[in-house]
């Protein structure tokens, strides 16, 4: 899909009727295309080029990239900082906001600042506990939870007011996202929790790593029974595992990730485990994309970001569509001229 009114960097697209944001992700999803998002590895540096080189890896293959907010409770460049750099050259980031490190005053300020910089997508998360990361001594904040955060940002956008009721003169026009983990107990509560998130304002959902397709199908079926699938865009999470050992480590050490034994056995039995992990990821994307209510895919290729483009290409889910990236249109014109 070519969006004809693509922006010059720093300039916003017009907001279409029925849309909440000016963002490309919302446009792609509402137009009924299969969307692809990916997680950008946040650098442990103050060098802007570290962000740009990591973003470039996804060029032409993703509609939006997640700027994580201290994911796994590890310290990295902030999501606001990453978003500032990305929007500067026209990229469409999904700014993750976690409730772990900031209270409602800081978060609402960040939302305004981010929207002013051109951030159109905000993903509201509770955040991993501090025990999971490299600063277990830190004070956990958790002033809001993901649900009240969703409500707060929706209130800022739709009612043009802060949580305190004070007016906002120009509200942040953002597309609101939330996470969901269909694989953590209590399993029968999960679809209801999704319903709560939608009631609180979630418009799109990115899930945790999805390795257990039958369990995901069950979750989607229950969500359909609750009438949720028409109300929200769901992007299941996937990612290549580098080896059986990595998968096992992640399963045991990263909160909320469920990897069935069969997956680990398949990886362990392969000659080239890394390749097998990527192949498995491609297969999962294809399988998930067939499920009713799945509107896209979210790729978290931890430490394998360079493989994302190839994985998306092999899966064929973009069906020839080339998502925007800086310089895309000139490149397409040049290619056409050469032919």
């Amino acid at each position: 899909m070519v969006i004809h009114d693509e922006p010059t960097p720093g300039e916003m697209l017009p907001i279409l009727t029925g849309h909440s944001s000016a963002g490309r992700l919302e446009r792609v999803l509402r137009a009924g295309h299969f969307a692809v998002t990916a997680e950008l590895a946040p650098p442990d540096s103050a060098n802007p080029h570290d962000v740009y080189t990591r973003a470039e890896l996804f060029d032409g293959h993703v509609d939006a990239m997640n700027a994580t907010d201290g994911s796994g409770a590890n310290c990295h460049m902030s999501s606001v900082g990453i978003c500032a750099l990305l929007t500067r050259i026209g990229y469409a980031p999904i700014m993750q906001v976690s409730c772990r490190d900031k209270n409602r005053i800081a978060i609402q300020g960040d939302v305004l600042g981010a929207a002013a910089m051109g951030v159109s997508n905000i993903l509201c998360l509770t955040g991993d506990g501090v025990q999971a990361g490299d600063h277990p001594q830190a004070k956990p904040v958790f002033d809001l939870d993901c649900m009240s955060l969703l409500e707060t940002v929706r209130g800022m956008r739709d009612k043009a007011q802060f949580l305190s009721g004070r007016k906002i003169s120009d509200p942040p026009k953002v597309f609101l996202g939330a996470a969901s983990n269909p694989f953590a107990p209590p399993l029968d509560f999960r679809p209801h929790r999704l319903a709560k998130k939608i009631a609180a304002g979630a418009q799109f959902i990115q899930t945790n790593y999805c390795f257990d397709v039958p369990r995901f199908k069950e979750f989607m079926a229950r969500s359909r029974d609750l009438g949720l699938l028409e109300k929200v865009f769901i992007l299941p999470g996937v990612g290549p595992m580098a080896s059986a050992r990595t998968a096992n480590w992640i399963r045991n050490n990263v909160p909320g990730i469920y990897i069935p034994d069969s997956i680990i056995e398949r990886l362990a039995g392969a000659k080239d485990q890394k390749k097998e992990g990527q192949q498995l990821c491609v297969e999962l994307i294809q399988e998930l994309s067939e499920i009713e209510g799945v509107s896209g895919i979210h790729v978290m290729a931890y430490r394998q970001e360079e493989s994302v483009a190839e994985i998306i290409k092999s899966s064929g889910v973009l069906q020839g569509r080339v998502p925007w990236y800086p310089g895309r249109d000139q490149k397409l014109l040049q290619e056409r001229a050469r032919l």
């Binding site: 409730c99 772990r100 509770t126 955040g127 991993d128 506990g129 999971a132 956990p140 958790f142 002033d143 939870d145 993901c146 649900m147 009240s148 996470a179 969901s180 983990n181 953590a184 107990p185 209590p186 509560f189 209801h192 929790r193 709560k196 609180a200 945790n208 909160p255 909320g256 469920y258």
Partner: peptide, 14 residues
Amino acid sequence: PKNLRNGPCGGVRQ
């Protein structure tokens, strides 16, 4: 520990 008022987080162990 996360003061969640709206349901379980995604980190609940199996």
